[in-house]
Nucleic acid binder design. Structure first.
Lengths: 135, 135
DNA sequence: CTTGACCTTCCATTAACTGGAAGGTTTATA
DNA sequence: TATAAACCTTCCAGTTAATGGAAGGTCAAG
């Protein structure tokens, strides 16, 4: 259970991504005589941790910080919480931005008859939102 | 009203971005004798169109398509609508993914006492979501 | 004639991978 | 034994949509 392919299956990360994570210093698997990577159970655990953190949208740098906290038995949970709260704030901002786009676009799409005629409220909106042609 | 700096103010796009848009063929401003870009009112209109489309989250390639439709007086509004609907679908998927992360993280953050003690439900979650340690 | 505000091009960097080339190793099979 | 399949390795390039900065040309004012 130590070759990269097996660890990929185990952790849910593509082998390519695992190599990338080693490149950027998130994991340091050992090497066997032939140069192949050898992953310890702790390495696999780290990679699964990373997969989960990434799936929750944490950036690689957040993951690096979370991993350090994870491995620091004397961490303060406040430090972890702070990282998560910042991330939650980012998520909330992204959702708000997307919902704003969604609202605007939904209205425009509803108004567009969508047939073979050229007049189109969507293009009208895009063209109208010009400082010069504001009215 | 034709220098890049003025067009930047007018369109709301950074000068750097306008040069980039020329690079990738979205606009083709004329050049004056000294090599400076000279923007026609139509160029400015195009750039404003792009700024608006980008602000609604359309990709550059979508923008390219929308701009082509905008300039095609014999377009079918159905073609525009299709692009917008695909984009709306992408937005909806992104929102759903973010909301899922938000829900999970909110629960974890609420559970984390966030003090100087090391035990932390957030790290527990990240570490627990391992195929091996599935509980 | 020089300072400052413009403008130009070109190169590097960002985030987080992903694809593919070129080549070494190991295992299975004919 | 030969060789092919199925692994593994490193390294380079590309993706999105810009952004930062260096090096240098131009132009109006004082």
């Amino acid at each position: 259970m130590t070759s990269i392919r097996k660890v990929a299956v185990e952790s849910g990360l593509p082998a390519k991504t695992i190599r990338y994570y080693e490149d950027i210093g998130l994991v340091r698997p050992a090497r066997s005589a032939n140069g192949y990577r050898v992953f310890s159970p702790a390495d696999v655990q780290k990679l699964s941790f990373l997969a989960r953190a990434r799936s929750l949208g944490f950036s690689i740098e957040d993951c690096r910080a979370l991993l350090a906290l994870y491995e620091d038995r004397s961490r303060a949970s406040a430090d972890v919480k702070r990282v998560a709260e910042h991330h939650l704030a980012r998520i909330a901002r992204k959702i708000a931005a997307l919902q704003s786009m969604q609202a605007t676009l939904t209205v425009l799409v509803e108004r567009c008859h969508g047939d073979d005629r050229p007049d189109c409220p969507i293009l009208d909106d895009l063209a109208r939102h010009t400082s010069s042609g504001a009215a």
